[in-house]
């Protein structure tokens, strides 16, 4: 990988080792990588979808928050 930028590389990669882990989940049939914020919320990192129209859906855009709803199985 080669960075071609006017910003010095040191400034770009500063703190790269602190990257928080993300996990894959499936929501409405779309696989997405999310970063958990707490037990109920997660932020979308990226979509993994073969349907290009999913990438135009503002609800799925990276940075959006998704919510988990806990329930008791009876």
């Amino acid at each position: 990988m080669i960075m071609y930028s006017i910003v010095p590389l040191d400034d770009i990669i500063e703190g790269i080792e602190n990257n928080e882990p993300s996990q894959e989940i499936e929501l409405d049939g779309v696989i997405m990588q999310v970063q958990p914020m707490n037990s109920y919320q997660a932020r979308i990192v990226r979509l993994i979808s073969p349907n290009p129209q999913d990438y135009l859906n503002p609800a799925y855009s990276p940075g959006q928050t998704i919510y988990f709803h806990p329930h008791i199985e009876t």
């Binding site: 990988m1 400034d11 770009i12 990669i13 500063e14 703190g15 790269i16 602190n18 990257n19 990226r46 979509l47 979808s49 290009p52 129209q53 999913d54 990438y55 135009l56 855009s61 990276p62």
Partner: peptide, 28 residues
Amino acid sequence: EGHMVLPPQNKTTKYEHIIPQLVAAEQN
């Protein structure tokens, strides 16, 4: 942003999101 996820101090454009959007725009 390409093959490496850049740390949060960078404002980035993710290419893996831009490319399917271009496909969708071409197809829509």
